[in-house]
Design a protein around this nucleic acid. Structure first.
Lengths: 211, 211
DNA sequence: CACTGTGAACCCGTTCACAGCA
DNA sequence: TGCTGTGAACGGGTTCACAGTG
């Protein structure tokens, strides 16, 4: 009945998944979707889809499903898809420079606005509209208060230092590729992408399967 | 009391985290560690550390903690760190080629043995010891039964096809970078790394913070 | 009749709290 | 005394099952 309960983290992290599949359906010319269908597309159960969607109001139609356009707009709204988000990237190595070159972000409203590295060989390199600067100038980002997101792709030893620095300069969301748990102030959100961890998980699975 | 209960997924995914911190402690010359210390290093509670470790036998010493060397060996063992794992990578684009160039995997025992792409411009390119082959030859991997892990870094539309193909050829672990839920046979493990999803999560946080 | 919306039941992982041990 | 090992309590998220609705 109530308009909006607080959306739990678990639900929030599925929002973009829903939006993605909804958008695909829209592209294919659909206009309604049931919780069962959406469940199949997202790999979730129908009950979960319904419960998730119920967190932000009820707009399904009994007997026919959800209106795709309506649902899409609500999800876009929640996810702030009409905004453009500015990002700073620190560490223009292998992964870092791949992200700088990656065109997908821009289409999604994410723009890497600044990039830094400590290595003279990398400083000055240009990727699209971004030129890699000396990390000693990182406090430049303080001037640009629109930058709230940092991507950290530096070696593990410097990651904590970098995290502390960028949070001092207004960053409140960090996507961390270094295999280390960052300690950050309250109010800062960190998400980790740990390739080695993922692979070692496989290693564990494969090892115990042999067992 | 019992030697080994089955290790839950949640615990398994922290194993490499423990090993990492334990190894660091060892490098620093430590020889014992308490659950409290290890908890601080890993960002977990001490209770959780103890419970996790208790899943694979008891080897802590009351009053003094865990022997680092012993713990390390057990973790290495569980994670199969003495093995070398072979990997096939499909999609030598931005991210894919960054992974091909990334030296960290090899040190950890993960070797990208084969790489494929559909794009003539990428086929034939050489990264270290790996040369990118035409994806039409992907059934080559069937001969090499040592390859159990695939990294999929292809555009979203081809990801499902690629997944089906590689699982036909003996792959049972997939690290998927495409923003799509892969449908795979029972017994195949998929882990997703979804950059856009992570960023959209930030977008959600930043949007709702503005409230 | 098909499908939504949602309390209730369930499940599983985390945390608590303390007995047991060196 | 300090720290482990672990049952018990807790909590959040998922699933169930069904009443309600167009």
């Amino acid at each position: 009945m109530q308009e909006k309960k607080k959306i739990p983290k678990s639900v929030a992290s599925r929002l973009s998944l829903y939006l993605r599949e909804i958008s695909r359906l829209e592209d294919e010319g659909g206009d309604k979707v049931s919780s069962v269908e959406l469940g199949e597309l997202t790999g979730l159960t129908d009950a979960q889809v319904r419960k998730d969607l119920s967190y932000f109001g009820q707009f399904g139609t009994s007997g026919s499903g959800y209106e795709i356009l309506k649902l899409k707009n609500i999800l876009r709204d929640l996810l702030g898809k009409d905004n453009i988000w500015h990002i700073v990237l620190i560490g223009a190595g292998n992964i870092g420079s791949a992200l700088l070159r990656y065109p997908g972000f821009k289409n999604q409203g994410f723009i890497i606005k600044e990039a830094f590295d400590i290595d003279q060989k990398k400083i000055g390199k240009c990727y699209g509209e971004v030129t890699v600067k000396d990390v000693r100038q990182i406090n430049d980002i303080e001037k640009d208060r629109s930058i709230k997101i940092a991507i950290i792709t530096v070696p593990v030893d410097s990651a904590q230092d970098v995290a502390e620095e960028v949070t001092r300069y207004g960053i409140i969301c960090i996507l961390n590729f270094s295999p280390v748990i960052l300690k950050v102030d309250e109010g800062v959100t960190v998400r980790n992408i740990d390739l080695s961890n993922e692979l070692e998980n496989f290693s564990f699975i494969l090892t115990s399967a042999k067992g």
